Amino acid sequence: MTQQELPGTGLRGPFDLVADTIEEELVENCPGAYALGFIDNFGRFSITFVGSAGEDLKSILKDRIGTASQFKFRHFAQPQQAFEKECEMFHQFMPVGNFLHPGRPTGTDWTCPRCRR
């Protein structure tokens, strides 16, 4: 499978959600946003969950191994950018694995760029 950008998100992937791939593709201690999912019968990436990490996306994705077969991701310079991207993807894709709107990280007053929550 070739690396593609998920339309409208700017995420890299898809990649297999396995430790070796995560080690190869992600950098240490970097904020980021991600989408988990699978390749459907039409060869499209189908999102089942979105999330973000304010400090270490690599560690978060390693913790998610076994919850999906594929992932897409993007690193960000600032944690707030990762949170905002997670919110945008939540509203755009309404993944079945996200029951609630992403929560604001503790100690921040950040709001969702879509609904200002």
Rank of each mutant, 00 (worst) to 15 (best):
Q92A: 13
K58A: 13
F83C: 10
A53V: 08
G43C: 05
L100F: 14
V96S: 07
K58S: 12
H101V: 00
A19H: 15
F42C: 13
G97V: 11
I47T: 07
P31W: 06
E25F: 09
L100V: 07
F49W: 06
K85F: 04
E25T: 09
A68V: 02
D20E: 14
Q80E: 14
G51N: 11
F42V: 06
F71Q: 09
L26T: 00
C30M: 11
F73Y: 15
I65C: 00
K62T: 05
V96D: 01
K62F: 09
I65N: 11
F73H: 05
V18F: 00
A35F: 03
N41K: 14
Q81C: 12
S46H: 06
V27G: 13
A82D: 06
E28I: 10
E25P: 00
T48S: 09
G54L: 10
F76A: 10
D63S: 15
S46P: 00
S46M: 00
T21H: 03
E25V: 15
H75M: 13
E55W: 14
L26N: 01
D40Q: 08
G37R: 01
A77K: 08
Y34F: 15
F93H: 06
H91P: 04
K72V: 11
E23L: 03
C30D: 00
E84H: 15
A68Q: 09
P95R: 03
L26H: 01
Y34C: 05
I65D: 00
